[in-house]
């Protein structure tokens, strides 16, 4: 079984770290992930930019684009995609295609730029 591990923390607090604190944390985390990578068990790792950089596409007839992160609490996180796009407009287009392909019900696609990315070593 593959597991996704989602990281939650206070953006304010993490955002207030100095570069040294941030770098040191990344080094400590890399000790854990390097070990997994060496065993061929690490999938893609992504560190997202702050929610201020987020855009949300809401499912529905119009596929409304909203600035900011997904803020509802009624829905749950069901999965995610990582796509390479030249601009935010391209990413919004991808999200809209997904929304069209899966148009039943409510829901949203939150688009977050990825700051740090590591492709991982686990076989497909």
């Amino acid at each position: 079984m593959r597991y996704a591990i989602l990281c939650y923390d206070s953006e304010d607090v993490v955002g207030a770290w100095s570069k040294q604190e941030d770098d040191a944390t990344m080094v400590r985390l890399a000790v854990v992930t390097n070990d997994l990578a060496a065993q061929g068990r690490l999938g893609p790792v992504a560190r997202l930019l702050p929610t201020t950089a987020a855009t949300t596409v809401r499912k529905g007839r119009e596929n409304l684009v909203i600035d900011g992160p997904f803020a509802e609490t009624k829905e749950q996180l069901l999965g995610f995609y990582i796509v390479d796009c030249a601009t935010l407009d391209e990413a919004i287009e991808v999200a809209r295609s997904l929304a069209r392909a899966n148009s039943q019900g409510v829901g949203s696609y939150e688009i977050r730029p990825v700051g740090h990315f590591r492709p991982g070593t686990a076989p497909a």
Partner: peptide, 17 residues
Amino acid sequence: NRKMIAEGLALIDKAMR
């Protein structure tokens, strides 16, 4: 600082829309 640049670029991209 590449991290700050990445965030800045993402934000201006978003604003221009």
